[in-house]
Design a protein around this nucleic acid. Structure first.
Length: 268
DNA sequence: ATGGTTGCTCCGCAA
């Protein structure tokens, strides 16, 4: 089969940014799109409009106002309905599918809790939730053993490497780049023997970002980004990584998301 | 050191 083009994007409202999703599809021609922060209850998910973009297979797990994940596909898949309800919250932070490609492919789309502003689990319940969520997914991953024929994508809300942030030193106490979060993310990846498919193409010390704050006067000039969005693959796919693309231009679009699409092409 | 913007929803909260 031709290469599989997988895209992940924190769209920050699927309804508001439907025209931008169409533009992403037009420019990057993904076969599978994993969205986060759809902010859309399932009964309002824009299925018809997305079907018209060329995605006959779709699954959405959304809720009112916050969170929400969705997978849109040109290829058939079976939804993984039995995956856990993280932290018993039902807060729509994960959806997984088994893609119908030769040899099969398990695909997981995650939206890890952002964690609030104070990096202390005793002072900040949102930070405690982030760490608890990471501990839970790590235990689940460890129990399942090394990932095989699998890809994990999403807004993991952690920039693990020094070169995943504009200033390692200045962000050490900023939620998303604290040592405790980085250790938790690394433990999760280690538990499944996941391979960082994007850093495979762009090793440190090259800077790499997927998110730029809305609060900057000039996001491009300041370039104070962070790499919060990730694509991991199982070791058996590491030799099949064909190319990647971080669609930085999308950050400059009118009414942009603060995250940009990240694409991985796999030679299955 | 601080404040800055956005989206959803209900006028604050999460990011």
């Amino acid at each position: 089969m031709p290469n599989l083009r997988l895209l992940t994007w924190n769209i920050n409202s699927v309804r508001l940014r439907l025209p931008l999703l169409a533009e992403v599809v037009r420019e990057l021609a993904p076969d599978v799109v994993c969205l986060q922060e759809t902010k859309c209850p399932d009964e309002f998910f824009p299925h018809e409009a997305i079907a018209a973009l060329g995605f006959p297979y779709r699954t959405a797990r959304g809720m009112k106002g916050y969170n929400g994940t969705a997978i849109l596909s040109k290829l058939p898949f079976a939804e993984r309905a039995a995956d856990p309800n993280w932290c018993e919250r039902g807060d729509c932070r994960h959806v997984g599918v088994d893609l119908d490609v030769p040899g099969g492919l398990e695909l997981h789309d995650f939206y890890v809790p952002a964690g609030g502003d104070i990096p202390d689990r005793d002072l900040n319940p949102k930070f405690a939730h982030k760490l608890d969520f990471l501990a839970e997914v790590t235990a689940w991953t460890a129990a399942r053993g090394p990932a095989k024929r699998a890809v994990l994508v999403g807004d993991l809300n952690i920039a693990p490497l020094e070169d995943d942030v504009w200033s390692h030193r200045q962000l050490l106490k900023i939620v998303s780049h604290t040592p405790v979060e980085v250790a938790a993310l690394n433990a999760w990846a280690a538990a499944g023997e996941w391979h960082d498919a994007i850093r495979h193409f762009v090793p440190p010390p090259e800077k790499l970002y997927t998110w730029w704050s809305y609060r900057a006067k000039d996001w491009l000039a300041a370039d104070r980004g962070r790499r919060l969005d990730h694509i991991w693959c199982s070791q058996d796919l590491a030799g099949k990584l064909a190319r990647h693309h971080i669609h930085k231009a999308a950050r400059g679009w009118t009414q942009a998301s603060d995250h940009v699409p990240v694409l991985l092409e796999l030679a299955l």
